[in-house]
Amino acid sequence: MNWAAVFGAAAIIPLLNASIRLAVPTGLAAVGESLCQRAGVLNLSLEGMMLSGAYAAFLATHYSGQPWLGVAAGVGGGMFIGMLMALFSVTLKTEQVINGIALVLLASGLTSFLHVRLFGVTAPERFDPMGKLEIPLLGAIPGVGSVVFDQSPLVYLAVVLIIGVWWTLHRTRFGLAVRAAGDRPGAADAAGISVDRVRAAAILASGAMAGLGGAVLVVGQLGLFAQNVTAGRGWVAIALVIFGRWSPLRVAAGAFLFGFTDALQLRIQSASGGIESDIPFEFFQALPYLVTIVVVVVATARARDDAQPESLGVPYIKGARSS
C-alpha cells in the first residue's frame, strides 16, 4: 500500500482539512448536547434537531439566495425541535428518552414529506455552498495557515461557539445554574434557580447548535438537501458527549478525533486497493467508532470522578423528593 498517499507531506494538510470538515457538524451538535445534559436533560432528539436545521437551512438558502440567512434558519430549525423537546420534557415532564426518539422520527418524516410536497418530482434544487474565508496574512502561513486559517467561515463560527459554551458553563452564573440543575435540581430550586427555565434554555441552546451543525452540512458543504442527509451524526454526537465526559472541550476534541479517523479511513481505503483489498471494508467504517470506544474506556478507567450529571434524564418535579 502507498502510505505516502495518506501520510506524505503533501497529504497531511488535506487530511487535517478533511478532519475538520467531518468534525464540525457533529462537534457542534455534541457540544450543544453536553450543555443540555449538564442541565440534566438527556436530549436524544439531537439527530432530529440537526436534520430539521439542515432542511430549514436548505429552504431559506434556496428561497432567499442568502447562505447566511440559511445558516440562521438552520439554527431556528434546530430550535424548533428544541422547543418541542422542552415542551415535552420540561413543561410536561414526560419521559425524555421517548420524547427524544419520537422527535427524531418526526424530523425525519417531516423533512422528507415537505421535500416531496414542496419540490415534487422535479430535480432537487441546489445552490453553491458557502466558500472559504481565508483570514488575511495568517492564512498564508505555510502548512498551519491553510489548516487553521483557510476554512469555511462556519468553521470559525463553530470554534467560537464551542469555546463560548465552555465559557458559559464554567465561568458564568448561568453555567453554574445549568450545572446545579443537572446535579442537584432540588438544591438549585431552593437557591432560587428556576430549574425548568434553565433546562429549557439549555435544550434550546442545544437545538441551536445542532441546527447549525445541520446547516453546515447543507449550506457549507453539499449545496443540496437529500433525505436524512445528517445520516446518523446526531447519534454519534450523543456518544461523543459520553466520550468527552460532559466537558465541552473534551467533547469537541472527541469530535475532531472522530472526524480525523473518518478522514483517515477513507484515505486508507482508497490507497489500499479498495474492493481488491483483503481487509473487509466494514473494518474501515468501524475504525472511527473503535478508536472512540477505546479512548472512552481508557479515559473512563483513568478518571477518578464521576463526570456524569447526577440527575441526568430525571424530570424535575417541584416538591417531589427526587434525589
Binding site: R21, L222, V229, A231, L266
Partner: peptide, 8 residues
C-alpha cells in the same frame, strides 16, 4: 444516505 461522507 451519507452524501457528505461521499463528498469526502
Amino acid at each position: 444516505i451519507d452524501a457528505a461522507l461521499a463528498k469526502e
